[in-house]
Simulated scan of single mutants.
Amino acid sequence: MKQCVAVLAPAEGWEPLCQRFKELEFLFVPPLTCVPMDSAAFSYFLSDLAVGRFDAVVMTCPMAVRAVIDIANSRGMLNRFISSLARTHLVVIGDRTAESARWNGLRVGSVSPEVSNDALVKHVQALPFRGSIALLRSDRGTRALPRALVECGWTVTEVPVYSPRLAQSEDMELLLDRMEKREVAALAFPTPLQTEAFFVQFFERFDREEGMALLEGVAIAAMSAEVVKRLDDHGVQADIIPKMATAELLIEAVADHL
Score class of each variant (00 low, 15 high):
250 L>R: 04
237 Q>G: 06
190 P>H: 03
219 A>C: 10
228 V>A: 11
248 E>F: 03
205 R>E: 08
205 R>S: 11
186 A>V: 10
244 M>E: 13
226 E>A: 15
245 A>T: 07
226 E>M: 05
244 M>V: 15
231 L>C: 08
215 L>Y: 06
228 V>Y: 01
249 L>H: 09
227 V>F: 01
233 D>W: 04
197 A>M: 02
250 L>F: 05
244 M>Q: 13
216 E>P: 00
245 A>Y: 01
234 H>R: 13
186 A>C: 10
216 E>K: 14
201 Q>H: 07
184 V>M: 09
237 Q>H: 10
206 F>P: 02
249 L>T: 13
197 A>R: 02
211 G>Q: 03
250 L>T: 14
246 T>P: 01
213 A>E: 08
209 E>Q: 14
206 F>A: 12
214 L>I: 14
228 V>Q: 10
247 A>K: 09
243 K>Q: 13
197 A>P: 00
213 A>P: 00
251 I>N: 02
244 M>R: 15
185 A>D: 07
208 R>S: 15
228 V>G: 06
238 A>V: 07
251 I>C: 05
207 D>P: 04
241 I>N: 01
251 I>S: 03
219 A>E: 04
185 A>T: 12
214 L>K: 15
186 A>E: 05
194 Q>L: 03
247 A>V: 03
232 D>T: 14
189 F>G: 10
189 F>P: 03
186 A>M: 06
215 L>K: 10
190 P>M: 04
199 F>H: 11
192 P>C: 08
207 D>K: 09
213 A>I: 07
187 L>S: 10
215 L>A: 14
211 G>V: 06
195 T>I: 09
248 E>Y: 05
202 F>H: 08
233 D>H: 09
201 Q>A: 11
219 A>L: 12
194 Q>P: 00
229 K>P: 00
194 Q>R: 12
203 F>A: 14
196 E>F: 03
